[in-house]
Simulated assay, not measured.
Amino acid sequence: MTWYNRSVGVQGEVYDYTSSAGSTTAKFVFFQSDVELSSLTQTRTSSGGSVSFNFLVEGPSGGINGVQVWLCHSGDCFIADEVTKPI
């Protein structure tokens, strides 16, 4: 994650080990304080192999200051990471 004034840049890769058993999705949920900015949620999905991503999410006035990264495979999801903007 790269933090900017109001926005955040997200770069990485999601990998799915087997295409025959569904897909793997990385879901990015953005926050301002403790408020989820649901309209900004992003997903990236791989169905066998690797999918790279690099995107910028523009935040509202006051900016984005937290991101939850979820990983989902075949309907099972968990929080893989929670990142907070450094002060």
Rank of each mutant, 00 (worst) to 15 (best):
T43L: 02
A26D: 05
T24N: 06
L37Y: 00
Q32F: 02
F78K: 04
T24P: 01
F53P: 02
G66N: 11
Q42V: 14
F78M: 03
W70I: 06
I64M: 06
Q32G: 07
A21Q: 12
S33D: 15
I79Q: 13
S19R: 06
M1K: 10
S19K: 07
G9S: 12
W3E: 02
P60S: 06
I64W: 01
G66K: 15
N65L: 08
G63E: 05
L71V: 13
N54H: 08
D81K: 12
S23N: 13
T18N: 12
L56C: 01
I64L: 03
L71I: 15
D16G: 01
S20G: 09
D34P: 09
L40S: 06
R44S: 08
S61T: 14
N5V: 09
P86V: 03
E58R: 11
A80Y: 09
Q11M: 05
T45R: 15
T2S: 09
S50V: 05
L56R: 14
N5M: 10
E82R: 13
R44M: 08
F55E: 06
S74P: 06
S61I: 14
G66F: 01
Q11G: 02
V51N: 02
G49M: 09
R6E: 03
C77D: 04
T43F: 01
E58A: 14
I87D: 04
D34G: 12
V67Y: 04
D34Q: 14
V10S: 07
I79E: 10
V8L: 09
D81H: 07
A21D: 12
P60D: 03
V69T: 14
S38R: 08
I87K: 10
G9P: 02
R44W: 06
T2Y: 08
I64V: 10
Q32C: 03
I64P: 00
V29L: 04
V83H: 00
F28Y: 14
S47N: 09
N65V: 02
E36S: 08
G62I: 08
G12K: 11
S61F: 07
T18I: 05
T2G: 14
T2F: 03
G62Q: 05
G9N: 13
A21E: 11
L56W: 10
V83M: 10
Q68K: 15
S50Y: 04
T45K: 15
E82N: 11
V29R: 08
Y4L: 13
V8T: 08
S74T: 11
G9A: 12
W3F: 06
D81Q: 14
N65S: 02
S74F: 13
L40A: 10
G59D: 00
T25C: 12
G49I: 09
G75E: 06
W3V: 03
S52V: 04
T25P: 03
G22I: 11
G59W: 00
I79K: 11
S52Q: 11
V35Q: 11
I64S: 00
F78R: 01
C72K: 14
Q42K: 15
G62Y: 12
V8A: 10
S47I: 07
V10L: 15
T18F: 10
R6A: 01
G48A: 04
V14M: 06
A26R: 12
Y17I: 06
I79V: 14
W70R: 08
G48P: 10
V57H: 07
F55G: 04
W70N: 10
R6D: 03
H73G: 03
Y17A: 11
